[in-house]
Amino acid sequence: MIPEEERKSMLRAHSIGPTMIRYLEEIGIERLADLRGADPHEIAMRMNIALGRRHINSLGVAALRNLIALAEREAP
């Protein structure tokens, strides 16, 4: 489960909302630092597998790219 402070930090990324955070939890990402150096397409693929269908589209990948950029700027 993502701690509340991490959740607040993640929500600061453009286009990231509660649903995307829930998807991150489903694939085991619990901290912003977990996303440093991540590939947004790989994260999207993992989410799609967890959801059992292709759900994360190009806008979702762009949102993940924003979240990864935030992680690289701010995560310890």
Rank of each mutant, 00 (worst) to 15 (best):
I2Y: 09
I2P: 01
P3T: 04
P3M: 08
E4H: 11
E4Q: 12
E4M: 11
E5N: 13
E6R: 05
E6T: 05
E6V: 04
E6Q: 14
R7E: 07
R7H: 12
K8R: 14
S9V: 02
S9K: 13
S9T: 06
M10N: 07
L11W: 01
L11H: 03
L11P: 05
R12D: 01
R12F: 00
R12P: 02
A13N: 05
A13E: 05
A13V: 04
A13L: 06
H14V: 09
H14A: 12
H14N: 12
H14F: 08
S15M: 11
S15F: 06
I16C: 04
I16T: 06
I16N: 07
I16G: 07
I16L: 12
G17Q: 10
P18S: 14
T19V: 14
T19D: 10
T19F: 11
R22Y: 12
R22W: 10
R22P: 08
R22D: 13
Y23E: 13
Y23V: 06
Y23P: 06
L24I: 03
L24G: 02
L24V: 01
E25C: 07
E25Q: 13
E25W: 00
E25G: 14
E26D: 15
E26C: 13
E26N: 14
I27C: 10
I27K: 11
G28F: 01
G28T: 04
G28A: 09
G28E: 04
I29C: 10
R31C: 04
R31A: 09
R31V: 03
L32T: 02
L32Q: 02
L32E: 00
L32D: 05
A33Q: 06
A33N: 01
D34V: 03
D34Q: 03
D34E: 08
D34K: 02
D34P: 06
L35F: 08
L35P: 12
L35C: 11
L35G: 07
L35V: 10
L35I: 05
R36C: 06
R36N: 08
R36Y: 02
R36W: 01
A38L: 00
A38V: 00
A38P: 03
A38D: 03
A38Q: 13
D39K: 07
D39A: 05
D39S: 14
P40N: 07
P40M: 09
P40G: 03
P40S: 09
P40R: 02
P40H: 02
H41E: 15
H41G: 15
E42P: 03
E42T: 12
I43P: 09
I43C: 09
I43T: 07
A44P: 05
M45I: 11
M45Y: 13
M45H: 15
M45F: 13
R46T: 03
M47D: 03
M47N: 01
M47T: 10
N48F: 01
N48V: 01
N48R: 10
N48G: 06
N48Q: 03
I49F: 11
I49E: 14
I49L: 15
A50N: 07
A50T: 07
A50G: 08
A50M: 11
L51H: 12
G52N: 06
G52T: 11
G52P: 10
G52W: 04
